[in-house]
């Protein structure tokens, strides 16, 4: 469904953030992107919806080359791609409901959105989504009154109300505590499964990625150095991605946690 062909990004400073990424994401697959800070994870997902302009190569979503689109066509293409952010990126001074509905901006005209007269079907869907993530009672609260986990749930609703084919998720758990991180990761992967959504999830926490995601791609210096299932991620592979470190604890911990969760359930 999504193909990246020799996707390249060189910043004006000369930093080569992406060096010819080739990647294929089939429909409905959730994929975790791991790698050290500065490896180009954020740049890669931003090159797909062109919040960052790639300097070379192609990103093809359902046969449409996103890198070639003009501004109008790009806006229509962005509606197909929901994005979730590390710092939630909610509009702090708007209510939860307004934030969720802002996911429909690509579908409604300026004056309708300015006067907040969204179609009833959008409002219904917003309530359904808020109910699904357990925030129905917060609909009328301002976004800056919410806790981190609650904000990220609103961010998820905003991305999903776009009815996207693909989710681009940038460090969804980096600002959250361990428990909330797991809840958010579980929620994202569950929702993707329910809706048959493909997703690319940037994530720092290797253990968390192994726990929830069936395919892991490792990025180092803007190049893919690992692509495989979580259990293929050995300590040699982690060393290749991140550099020399004692990885045994990380891998063991994951296995321990897996059994914990199974036991709890």
């Amino acid at each position: 469904m999504l193909q990246l062909e020799k996707l390249t990004k060189t910043y004006k400073t000369g930093d080569k953030a992406l060096q010819g990424i080739d990647l294929e994401v089939p429909s409905g697959q959730v994929l975790a992107l791991i790698g050290p800070s500065g490896a180009g994870k954020s740049t890669m997902i931003r090159c797909i919806n062109r919040l960052v302009e790639p300097t070379g190569g192609a990103a093809i979503l359902d046969g449409v080359n996103l890198t070639r689109l003009g501004s109008g066509a790009l806006r229509r293409a962005r509606r197909e791609m929901g994005m979730i952010f590390q710092e939630y990126a909610l509009v702090e001074r708007l209510t939860v409901m307004e934030n969720v509905l802002s996911g429909r901006l690509g579908y409604v005209g300026f004056w309708r959105s300015f006067l907040r007269r969204y179609p009833q079907s959008d409002v219904d869907e917003a309530f359904r989504l808020l109910d699904r993530v357990g925030l129905l009672h917060m609909a009328d609260k301002r976004a800056d009154e919410l806790s981190g986990g609650q904000r990220q749930r609103v961010g998820i609703c905003r991305a999903l109300i776009q009815q996207p084919k693909l989710l681009l998720v940038d460090e969804p758990t980096a600002s959250l505590d361990p428990k909330t991180s797991r809840q958010i990761m579980r929620l994202i992967t569950e929702l993707c499964r329910e809706r048959g959504l493909a997703a690319i999830i940037n994530i720092h926490d290797v253990a968390l990625a192994q726990m929830f995601v069936p395919r892991i791609v490792g990025l180092r210096f803007g190049e893919i150095v690992f692509d495989g299932p979580p259990d293929a991620l050995t300590s040699e592979k982690l060393t290749e991605i991140y550099g020399e470190e004692d990885w045994e604890a990380t891998i063991e911990k994951v296995e321990g946690e897996d059994t914990d969760i199974e036991a709890a359930e």
Binding site: G82, A89, L90, F110, F114, G155
Partner: peptide
């Protein structure tokens, strides 16, 4: 970040401004 998030929804230039 908030501007980026609104842009990513496919909003127009004026909508990005308003939201």
């Amino acid at each position: 970040g908030q501007v980026e998030a609104i842009t990513a929804t496919g909003a127009s230039r004026w909508q990005v401004m308003a939201y």
